Simulated scan of single mutants.
Amino acid sequence: MTGKILTIVIAVSALIAGVAMYYLQVYAYYETVTPNGVDDVQLTTLNGTHETILYEDFQAIDSESSPIRFRACFTTQTPLSTLTSTYEQYIGSSPRNAPGWFECFDANSIGQDIDNGRAQVFTSQRNLEFGIDRVVAITEDGRGYIWHEINECGDKAYDGSPLGEDCPERETGGN
């Protein structure tokens, strides 16, 4: 009898822990970003300055628990040809999955659009935080997506490799 009770307690505890971990990963740490309507969507020009592009229908989520959890969706009327001739393209980026409840951001679909040339990826801001770049993908039909990408300096810092000379100084926190 004691074995059955112990088995039930362990099974219920495991179920509760599993549900709690799922909730914490998918829902708990994300917050809706309130757009300011002024500079939510910025791109880096070919000469290195930041410019806000025209955008509508901005939706975004973020989390303080990780620098790569930011995701956003928007629309723009600016033609892709104008964007590619004016702004810095970002090479080697692929969108990260967003929680299923953030329906406007489908990483697989965005990735296919990028791979098939139906979307271009632009630099929004390099080293937004050490090792993290903000990138913006815009499709031919004006749908736009923003996420954070780990850059080369971030890869080196996180795997313990020596940082290159082209990496910015890393801020160190102290008590």
Rank of each mutant, 00 (worst) to 15 (best):
M1R: 11
M1E: 08
M1G: 15
K4S: 12
K4N: 06
I5N: 11
I8T: 15
V9A: 15
V12L: 14
V12A: 14
S13P: 02
A14R: 00
I16D: 03
A17L: 13
V19K: 04
Y22G: 00
Q25G: 07
V26Q: 13
Y27D: 12
A28F: 09
A28Q: 13
A28W: 07
P35I: 09
D40F: 00
D40C: 01
V41S: 07
V41N: 06
V41G: 03
V41E: 01
Q42H: 03
Q42M: 13
N47F: 00
N47A: 07
N47K: 12
T49V: 05
H50F: 09
T52L: 00
L54S: 15
L54W: 02
E56M: 02
F58N: 09
A60H: 01
I61P: 00
D62S: 14
S63D: 10
E64W: 07
S65E: 10
I68N: 08
R69I: 05
R71W: 09
T76M: 00
T78C: 06
L80H: 07
T82S: 13
L83W: 12
T84P: 01
S85W: 00
Y87I: 02
Y87N: 09
Q89Y: 03
Y90H: 06
I91E: 15
G92D: 09
S93L: 09
S93Y: 13
R96Q: 08
N97F: 10
N97P: 11
N97M: 11
A98Q: 01
W101T: 05
F102Q: 01
E103S: 13
F105L: 10
F105T: 06
F105M: 04
A107M: 06
S109G: 03
S109E: 13
S109P: 03
G111R: 04
Q112N: 13
Q112M: 11
Q112A: 12
I114E: 05
I114C: 00
I114L: 05
I114Y: 02
D115C: 05
R118C: 03
A119K: 02
A119W: 08
Q120H: 04
Q120S: 08
V121C: 08
V121L: 01
V121F: 10
S124T: 05
Q125T: 14
Q125Y: 04
R126M: 12
N127W: 06
L128M: 04
E129N: 11
E129W: 06
F130D: 07
I132Y: 02
I132G: 05
R134S: 13
V135F: 04
A137V: 05
E140A: 12
E140L: 11
D141I: 11
D141Q: 15
G142D: 03
G142E: 10
R143T: 08
R143I: 02
G144H: 09
I146M: 11
I146T: 10
N151P: 02
E152A: 15
C153N: 14
C153P: 11
D155P: 03
D155V: 15
A157C: 01
Y158D: 14
G160W: 05
S161I: 11
P162L: 12
P162I: 07
L163Q: 08
D166V: 07
D166E: 15
C167G: 07
P168H: 03
E169R: 06
R170S: 10
E171Q: 12
T172H: 07
G174E: 14
N175V: 04
